[in-house]
Computed example of a mutant assay.
Amino acid sequence: MDNFFKRLSLAGFAVVLSSAGYAADLPTPVIEHIPAAPAPAVGGFYLRGDIG
């Protein structure tokens, strides 16, 4: 049983090292620029009345 855990830990260590090596080779992310929303129309008519 002790030999099994040694092999299992070595296999886990190998997986961690291989995934770290793969992560170093990832391509740079592509950043897409989203255009800003158009400004709202200025000069609209607004009427307000207060009673009190």
Rank of each mutant, 00 (worst) to 15 (best):
I34Q: 11
D2R: 14
A39H: 03
G52D: 03
I34V: 12
F13W: 13
T28L: 13
A39S: 04
R7I: 04
P35N: 02
T28H: 11
F5K: 14
P35G: 02
A11K: 02
P40V: 03
K6A: 09
L8P: 04
I31P: 08
S9I: 08
G43K: 03
R7Y: 10
P40G: 02
D2T: 10
A20S: 00
F5W: 15
L47Q: 08
G21I: 01
G21L: 03
H33G: 07
S18W: 10
V15E: 04
L10M: 08
G44T: 11
L17A: 00
Y46L: 09
G21D: 03
G12I: 00
D25E: 12
A24H: 11
A24Y: 08
R7Q: 05
I34G: 01
F4V: 03
I31T: 12
L26W: 08
G21F: 05
L26K: 12
S18G: 06
G44C: 11
G43M: 01
G44L: 15
D50V: 11
A11E: 05
S18T: 09
A39M: 03
M1P: 15
R48V: 07
F13R: 06
G52F: 07
G49N: 13
S18Y: 07
I51R: 11
N3H: 15
F45Q: 06
A11T: 03
A23H: 05
L26C: 02
I51C: 04
V30S: 13
G21P: 01
Y46R: 14
T28K: 10
V42R: 09
V42Y: 10
V15G: 00
